[in-house]
Simulated scan of single mutants.
Amino acid sequence: MSRTTASLKRQIGGATDLQSVVRTMKAMAASNIVQFESSVRALADYNRTVELALGVCLREVEFADPHPPPAGQNAANTTAAIVFGSDQGLVGQFNSIIAEQALQTLAPLPGKHLIWTVGERVHTSLADSESQLVGQFNVPSTVKAIAPLIGQLLVEYEAQTEQNTGNQLFLFYNRPTVGSLYEPVSQRLLPLDAPWRRQLCETPWPTKNLPQVLGNHLPTMRKLTGEYLFVSIFRACAESLASENASRLAAMQRADKNIEELLVKLNSSFHRQRQSSIDEELFDVVAGFEAFRS
């Protein structure tokens, strides 16, 4: 049964409204990508400053104790992880990919596994794992909302692990890449391993005025380590949000293309149906006229 012009017109109207929504979501995703990528670039200078200051403190520690205990001497009895995902859909395999990365990385590690998730969707993906999900947080929608989230995560981490020694802390998130939308990343933040400390110690100071740590260097080092954790988690969150919006932008571009193709077909059918209706009316008029003349 052929579709009537009225039904075709309704379908065209519905598809046009949907295309308007899709294009609005495309614009929002593109705008979000810009703000989150800009925040990552702006964070680079501060991160560099923190690493230089940590290098100074670590050199003083090495000088005070030239034979520090090797990293990893105490086996970790608790492994903590923060996994960044999404609250909303239309992101393809975004959450399943990072959840699988987290599970594969944590599986061979001994001891208790504590996981905090940022995003309802990734929390669901990890719900059936053997790891203990100790917290779930909503995904921040703006750059300003990232800092309070990081503060809550650090408070939760300290509260859960303050009674344990030899803790490990991992980050799992998707990072934007050139040539593809994103790639899963796993990063171990704690403990600060020997190669990382050695690299910071060997980093030259950028000016001729060499710095010094006044007073006890240990409190300064603890404070700088906290800043290092904050910067690292902030960057992971911002890159995850940029990747999420890039994935959503790609999905909206595909949807926009499909709707455009559908509209072409519907408009073509509508014009054919309308022309056919006009032809039928003309034939009726001509037939009536011929009948009247005879």
Rank of each mutant, 00 (worst) to 15 (best):
N95Y: 07
S186R: 11
T105I: 05
V178W: 03
P70V: 09
E202P: 00
S277H: 05
L241Y: 00
Q160R: 14
R23H: 12
N258W: 12
A255W: 12
T4V: 09
R59S: 12
V56G: 01
N216P: 05
F84P: 01
E51S: 15
E202K: 14
Q212I: 11
F234N: 07
E156C: 11
S243D: 02
V61T: 05
N47L: 05
M28W: 12
Q101R: 14
V83M: 06
H113Q: 09
N258R: 14
A99P: 04
H113W: 11
P184Q: 02
F270S: 00
V285I: 15
E281Q: 14
F289I: 05
V264W: 07
F137R: 12
I259V: 14
N174V: 02
P69T: 11
A287T: 12
H123N: 10
L214N: 06
D65Q: 12
A81Y: 01
Q19M: 13
S232V: 02
G151Q: 08
V178Q: 10
L224P: 05
E281C: 07
A15I: 10
L266C: 05
A15T: 15
P148Y: 06
N32R: 15
I146T: 08
R197D: 01
E62H: 15
K9A: 15
T79I: 10
L210F: 13
R121Y: 01
F230S: 04
S125W: 03
I233F: 01
E60T: 15
K112F: 02
L200K: 02
T207R: 04
L282K: 10
L249Y: 05
Q132C: 08
T16P: 03
E227Y: 14
A75D: 04
L126H: 06
N95L: 04
T5R: 10
T16D: 02
L54H: 05
R59V: 03
I33C: 06
E280V: 09
T203C: 03
L218E: 10
S129A: 11
L114P: 02
N245S: 09
V178K: 11
L126V: 09
Q88H: 08
L190Y: 04
K223I: 03
V118R: 00
I115E: 00
T4M: 04
R197Y: 02
A80H: 08
S269L: 10
V91A: 07
F234Q: 07
A145H: 07
L106M: 11
Q160L: 09
R41Q: 13
G13E: 09
H217N: 04
Q152C: 11
A29M: 04
T142E: 00
